[in-house]
Amino acid sequence: MSHLSVENVSKIYPGHNADDEPVLALDDVSFRVEDHEFCSVLGHSGCGKTTLLTMMAGFEHPSMGRILVDDKPVGKPTWQRSVVFQDYALFPWMTVHDNISFGLEMKGLPAVDREEIIRRHIELVGLDGFENRYPHQLSGGMKQRVSIARALAVDPKVLLMDEPFAALDAQNRALMQEEMGRLLANADPVLRKTMVLVTHSIDEAILLSDRIIVLTRRPGRVKANIEVRLPRPRDEDSPDFAKLKKKIRGLIHDEFEHDI
């Protein structure tokens, strides 16, 4: 049971050279993600959405404002906010089993407990039988499953995902989105986390989210904060889905025109 709030967060990067103008990546962003809510941060590339996620994880810190998890400011990275990376970031010298085990070992869990958790998570992402493979022996979709299992296994308060399906081919992406949707619909309260997903895909956001934060183009500001109340699992062909998609596309398109 954890909630996350972003309060008036701005991020300024110094320019590359000393005399370059500093770059404003995020400008006064505020929103709140409730307990067990799945929230997508949607925006064009370069709108600062990944920066936002990076700050939620604690890899970087806001220039202004603050990010709170359960009303406590985010500090250093911890397993309580685990991350799924776009490029999987699996440890290539570890098997699937050992990758998932890593976080549990770091938590100091005894081997018996670890094995049970690992088994459950391998099953959850459908990788039974692949425990002893190395990452380079897996397809992109399977790698991302391992990455998700690894991040979930440590039982984080918040699961952060940075464009997790963007590097996959169209077919695998659709499949993974569908499975993620099913995972969320099944809503096993033990496995259900507060989740934040960064994406540029409107479909993906609607398919998975309880809440969608639409960011403007550079610098990123909150353009819209939309609650999605469609029933799960979601049907991409339903009229409600299409209506919402049109609305969001309008918001984002709007943004594009501004720029030109």
């Binding site: 994880a57 604690g58 890899f59 250093k76 990275p77 911890t78 397993w79 906010r81 685990s82 991350v83 990376f85 490029d87 970031a89 699996l90 440890f91 890593f102 976080g103 770091m106 938590k107 690894r150 991040a151 440590v154």
Partner: peptide, 18 residues
Amino acid sequence: IEPNLIRAARCLGASEFQ
């Protein structure tokens, strides 16, 4: 080293020594 490997280890709870 891929920086994300380090980040992944950090957010899985590894200490600096680990």
